[in-house]
């Protein structure tokens, strides 16, 4: 009697038939194609529909350049602020035990569950012409709402949790033994952080910064509420896209939008590479 078979029945029983598998794979791919790939493809197709000259003109136009500059400035301010905060928050949450830690983690996530429009609204209420602090600032010649400071503030708010959220689980997983050993061997606090902690978290940190940056450059709702939409002055790239689109200038709208799409693709690629790098490191 010969009982050894090529496919033992047990493994067949924990798998779908090959027809079923193919159907499920096909269904998943169709969903991905319809819901994710087509929207991506449309952007580039519309952007290049009128040819490269129109594309380049739309990006090089003065208002577009001003919008690009403002977006870069905003991200250059907002991202370091939240980077610094993310490291501080992850340091005390992951490396120490204290009461109210869970509450703190929940509060850090709060901006994620607030509508972008409401995120903008809270700053209008605070710094607007009829807000609590607005008149005081206006008296000192500082305008916040409908000006660049408001755009930066709203961006800081909506990108607030990104770095912290990436670092907290990573640093929790790593524990504190390595830092304790370094201190025992005579390293100072800063030295320990720079030479032990930072190398351990650098990939997670980079990923958090990338996500934070992508959102900072692409934020629409919150920035739209505080910006005032002054062309050349308080228009970020997403707001510029909106204006062009509403003027039925579709080719230009998609051309400028394609810049943000490229940024998103770079972010996704870097994320995939970082995940692969990380898996290879821990896998070996």
């Amino acid at each position: 009697m010969h009982i050894a078979r090529k496919n033992p029945p047990l493994s067949l029983a924990t798998r779908e038939t090959s027809a079923m598998r193919r159907m499920l794979i096909a269904a998943a791919l169709i969903v991905l194609l319809l819901f994710l790939f087509l929207p991506l493809a449309v952007i580039f197709r519309e952007a290049l529909r009128m040819g490269w000259q129109v594309y380049l003109d739309a990006i090089a136009e003065p208002y577009a350049v001003a919008a690009i500059r403002l977006t870069l400035v905003t991200a250059a301010i907002a991202v370091p602020f939240n980077l610094f905060f993310g490291i501080a928050a992850a340091w005390c949450i992951a490396k120490f035990d204290f009461r109210g830690k869970n509450l703190l983690v929940t509060l850090i996530d709060l901006p994620f569950s607030v509508s972008p429009v409401i995120s903008g609204l809270v700053y209008v209420l605070l710094f607007g012409a009829q807000g609590w602090l607005g008149p005081w600032f206006a008296g000192h010649g500082i305008q916040i709402i409908f000006a660049v400071p408001g755009i930066v503030l709203a961006t800081v708010f909506v990108t607030f949790p990104f770095v912290a959220r990436e670092l907290i689980p990573l640093m929790q997983e790593q524990g504190r033994e390595e830092e304790e050993a370094a201190l025992l061997l005579g390293a100072g606090g800063l030295q320990t952080f720079l030479r032990i902690t930072l190398p351990n978290i650098k990939w997670g940190l980079l990923y958090g910064v990338l996500l934070c940056n992508a959102r900072a450059m692409g934020e629409f709702g919150a920035v739209s509420v505080v910006s005032g939409h002054i062309r050349g002055l308080t228009n970020t790239i997403p707001l510029h896209v909106e204006i062009l689109y509403n003027e039925y200038n579709f080719a230009a709208a998609f051309a400028v939008a394609s810049l943000l799409t490229l940024l998103a693709l770079v972010t996704l690629t870097a994320k995939t590479l970082l995940a692969w790098l990380y898996a290879n490191k821990t896998g070996s």
């Binding site: 991905l32 994710l36 790939f37 087509l38 929207p39 991506l40 449309v42 952007i43 519309e46 972008p116 996500l211 992508a214 450059m217 692409g218 934020e219 629409f220 709702g221 790239i237 997403p238 707001l239 896209v241 909106e242 689109y245 579709f250 709208a253 998609f254 939008a257 943000l260 799409t261 940024l263 998103a264 693709l265 972010t267 996704l268 690629t269 994320k271 995939t272």
Partner: peptide
């Protein structure tokens, strides 16, 4: 990798793209 696209793509860009589609 494509699954994360909605996280990375700005909402306004997603908006005009879906509308056109």
């Amino acid at each position: 990798a494509l699954v994360d696209l909605p996280f990375a793509l700005p909402t306004a860009v997603a908006g005009i793209s879906l509308t056109t589609l």
